[in-house]
């Protein structure tokens, strides 16, 4: 077969597929969101979205979640990665355990934490045994927004820190040991070594971990539903409701476009904020 066309034949199926199931729906979503929704105004769907009672709440909730969850996950993953650096025996085992949640869906993670946090759940039982609680207490309804938020944060951190951890550990493995050793010879304290040597060298990994996580965090939905039902509206949840329950595809598309714009903006922010000069990288 011709050597020149062979690579094109090989990538063609994937290109066609991504065209059909990524590019086309992407364009369609955008077009659909501007179809006016029968109002005659191209921004009709958007104004319906913005004027919806849940819009402001879901926007605020989603951002709050991302702003709390993502930094927390990064900090935890960095700490876990540094711990793994320090151990020899059992490293494989520990790494496996820590990455188990990789395979857990957000829905399942929500259900797991529901088992712990429901009225008669394990956390309440533990608090009862400690004498801190008199009986079953609800944490996850609309009257307890703070604890509901905390529960969702717990579920998200529990589930998705593993992804960040893998990226960080992969990055740590590419840093030659000599850098740290050299710093030690010059008398650098561990914390200083971490902030001056490890973190800067880890910047590309941190960047891609943040991009990956932020995009996924804006998609948060199933864990929220499992724990709080409709009590904690989020953007993707609203898109789902408009599509499946209200059967209004236009407004759902407007939500989708909004989420994509936010995701892209976040990606750009991370790309810019954590820009690395290729020459200063090991």
């Amino acid at each position: 077969m011709n050597q020149r066309i062979l690579p094109y034949l090989l990538v063609a199926p994937a290109v066609v597929f991504l065209g059909a199931f990524f590019i086309v729906p992407l364009v369609q979503t955008i077009v659909l969101s501007f179809d006016g929704g029968g109002t005659g105004n191209a921004l009709g769907n958007y104004s319906r979205m913005v004027n919806d009672l849940n819009f402001g709440v879901s926007l605020r909730n989603t951002f709050m979640l991302v702003l709390v969850v993502v930094p927390l996950q990064l900090a935890m993953a960095l700490a876990m990665g540094m711990m793994l650096q320090k151990i020899e025996r059992g490293r494989e085992m520990v790494l496996w355990i820590w990455t188990i949640p990789l395979g857990v869906s957000d829905l399942a993670a929500g259900l797991v934490w529901l088992a712990l946090l429901q009225n008669t759940g394990y956390i309440n039982s533990a608090l009862f045994h400690l004498g801190l609680l008199d009986g079953p207490t609800p944490w996850l309804n609309s009257e307890t927004p703070v604890t509901l938020f905390a529960a969702i944060v717990l579920a998200e951190v529990w589930r998705a820190t593993a992804v960040v951890l893998i990226v960080i550990v992969a990055g740590l493995q590419t840093i030659p040991k000599e850098f740290g050793e050299a710093a030690e010879i010059f008398g650098a304290k561990p914390w200083r070594k971490f902030t001056r040597i490890t973190l800067p060298l880890l910047k590309p990994s941190i960047q891609s971990a943040l991009i990956l996580r932020t995009v996924l965090a804006f998609e948060v939905f199933a864990a929220v539903y499992a724990l709080g039902g409709r009590n904690f509206p989020v953007l993707v949840g609203e898109a789902y409701t408009w599509q499946n329950e209200n059967q209004n595809y236009g407004v759902a598309a407007a939500y989708a476009v909004l989420i994509m714009v936010i995701s892209l903006a976040a990606t750009l922010v991370w790309l810019k904020a954590l820009r690395t000069n290729p020459e200063t990288q090991a």
Binding site: T29, V215, E219, V236, A252, A253, S263
Partner: peptide, 9 residues
């Protein structure tokens, strides 16, 4: 991109 959302259209 949040790819799953593209299921909508």
């Amino acid at each position: 991109f949040p790819l799953a959302i593209l299921a909508l259209p």
